[in-house]
Design a binder for these strands. Structure first.
Length: 543
RNA sequence: GCGCCCGUAGCUCAGUUGGAUAGAGCGCUUGCCUCCGGAGCAAGAGGCCACAGGUUCGAAUCCUGUCGGGCGUACCA
């Protein structure tokens, strides 16, 4: 309907020889203002130097509107043109949902294009924490949205299993291992204190009981990496996330990509040596201080492989690249983009989604989290407490750019009045009605149902609500924000519950009306299921 | 100091590219089960959209400044 009206207005503007700017159509909040509103008359008022109402009248006079789509229109103060959709249009849309079913909501905006979403990317130094969890769910859900928009999506996990931190990890495990053998060995300075390393040390002892203080730390390091990665992958699996590619930073060294970047930047005159380190002139970018790319020890900082990695992403030819980072990485990406730019690479298609921190509250107290210290809460523990569905929903129900307060006590208590259950209940409730209808010999049958019977206020409101689904998906894709989806689904569930309270669906005295209402419920059920599947949440048929 | 994010009901948060009388959940007050699942619905109270200017037909939304909170500002990742 929006497309149709936009087309008609454009045609009419051409006819009148008026300027065609951006035609903004919106869905009015109040039903008395119709189903689609245009502000075009007000927008043109200045340019045409005429009153908006007058412009609206001239525009609309002589406009031909298909009565199968638009039933009527009104021109109201201060110059809105409000369009009211026809009942035929509404029922046609409903039929469309029932025809498309699990494809309803998909669009072709990314058709034939590839997208890569990089998320999690935690180095294997410890289990995933509550903080990683947000990124995990955000990234996976974004990937789902892109899939629904037609993209061929690659989910990627970038990691580094070399360098100082991993060495510290190996040393920490070695200390724990020797500790189990009765030695009193202190953890290395800045080492990893988490209890998970004690468990891993125990496993190692089982497998290889004869290691000692002479054993090369490399052995401990690689055992720790293997063990922790398996813990991480199991967490990801529990929450329904599966990466297509695990990209090892080391490969960038082995294939010489790191050196290539250094030599290109050097040729551009953007590198210089100081105090034994190699510096990158980022001051052109506006940073106060230049950044170190290679430490005086000869080891690169994280920035250098990050640049090389993103250069590879460009070479790999993705049409869209999405990086999901936590707010603590906010300073890294401008450097990377700057480096790509000076290397003459186009990077407009690289989008960065930054999410703010998760504050975890337990018994009203803020739990500070640090992987190296022992006092963190893992994603696994969170899933144990509230379940994967609740975890996934809570992580995406808020805007990524807002801080997320995750109150564990509340999340547990909310097993009774949780928005997740509200949505799942709506879905289950529909199935319950279907089961009961079947007992009475009634089934949803859109082909033969007389959908024009669906004309009561709450019923029309519910149908209208269903039509918004594709718009929400499209909006999520465009903005790379996903919280509008849970918000939308919640509203749909509310519209359903309201409809349910007002109208009895199964009425053996009125089979025609029952059929039509069952068809409507089926449409709602399809959308709930589609929406929940994008969120990675179960849509139960009974609870 | 500088950069990014946030500031909307008692609390947690929505509010599509600027639109019409700013919304929801929780909590509080009060109704609705002989009836398809009450994990629900209805009604009520609760607001100077942090503050001050500006842009315009029109601002919670855009611009500037101020105040408050978070994150960063490493030869850690």
């Amino acid at each position: 309907m929006f497309d149709y009206i936009e087309k008609q207005i454009t045609a009419r503007l051409n006819e009148l020889g008026w300027p065609i700017g951006q035609i903004q159509l919106s869905r009015p909040k109040k039903i008395e203002n119709g189903d689609c509103a245009s502000n075009i008359a007000m927008a043109l008022a200045k340019e045409l130097k005429r009153a908006p109402l007058e412009i609206a009248r001239e525009l609309m006079d002589g406009m031909v509107l298909d009565s199968g789509v638009v039933e009527k229109y009104e021109i109201v103060n201060p110059g809105f043109i409000n369009f009211f959709q026809s009942a035929d249009y509404l029922t046609a849309q409903l039929k469309n949902i029932l025809k498309l079913r699990e494809d309803f909501g998909k669009n072709a905006s990314g058709e034939g294009q590839t997208a890569q979403v990089e998320f999690v990317s935690a180095n294997p130094t410890g289990p995933l924490t509550v903080g990683h969890g947000r990124q995990t769910v955000l990234g996976d859900t974004l990937a789902n949205i892109l899939t629904w928009s037609g993209y061929d999506v690659t989910r990627e996990y970038y990691f580094n299993n070399a360098g100082r931190q991993m060495k510290l990890l190996g040393e920490s495990l070695k200390a724990r291992y020797l500790e189990l053998k009765g030695d009193t060995i202190l953890l290395p300075d800045g080492g990893y204190e988490g209890e998970y390393l004690i468990d891993i040390a125990r496993d190692l002892q089982q497998e290889q009981p004869d290691l000692n203080s002479e054993t090369d730390v490399e052995l401990f390091k690689s055992f720790a990496e293997k063990s922790i990665f398996s813990i991480i992958k199991s967490s990801l699996e529990r929450i329904g996330v599966k990466h297509d590619v695990f990209y090892n930073e080391r490969s960038l060294y082995e294939t010489g990509k790191i050196d290539e970047v250094l030599s290109i930047l050097s040729d551009k005159g953007l590198l210089y040596k100081k105090d034994g380190a190699t510096w990158f002139k980022t001051s052109d970018l506006g940073t106060e201080q230049d950044r170190v790319l290679v430490k005086s020890s000869g080891e690169p900082t994280y920035r250098l492989p990050d640049i090389a990695y993103h250069r590879e992403k460009i070479f790999r030819g993705f049409d869209l690249v999405v990086d999901v980072f936590g707010a603590d990485h906010i300073d890294a990406y401008p450097d990377v983009l700057f480096a790509l730019k000076v290397m003459g690479l186009k990077h407009d298609h690289i989008k960065v989604v930054i999410h703010q921190f998760v504050t975890l509250l337990r018994s009203g107290e803020v739990v500070k989290m640090s992987t190296r210290k022992a006092n963190f809460v893992t994603l696994d523990e969170l899933i144990d407490e509230v379940g994967a569905d609740v975890v996934r929903y809570f992580y995406v129900m808020r805007s990524a750019s807002s801080h997320l307060n995750f109150d564990l006590d509340l999340a547990k208590r909310q097993t009774e009045e949780n928005p997740v259950f509200y949505l799942q209940y709506a879905h289950a409730r529909i199935f319950s009605i279907f089961r009961r209808a079947k007992e009475r010999g009634l089934e949803a049958d859109a082909e033969n149902a007389d959908l024009s019977l669906l004309n009561e206020e709450l019923t029309v409101a519910l149908i209208n609500e269903t039509l918004g689904f594709p718009e929400v998906i499209e909006h999520c894709r465009r903005t790379l924000e996903i919280h509008p989806l849970p918000t939308y689904l919640y509203g749909l569930a509310t519209a359903l519950h309201k409809f349910y309270s007002e109208h009895k669906v199964i009425d053996t005295e009125n089979v025609e009306l029952s059929r039509a209402r069952l068809a409507l419920l089926e449409a709602v059920q399809i959308i709930l299921k589609n929406g929940l599947s994008i969120l990675g949440i179960n849509a139960p048929e009974q609870m």
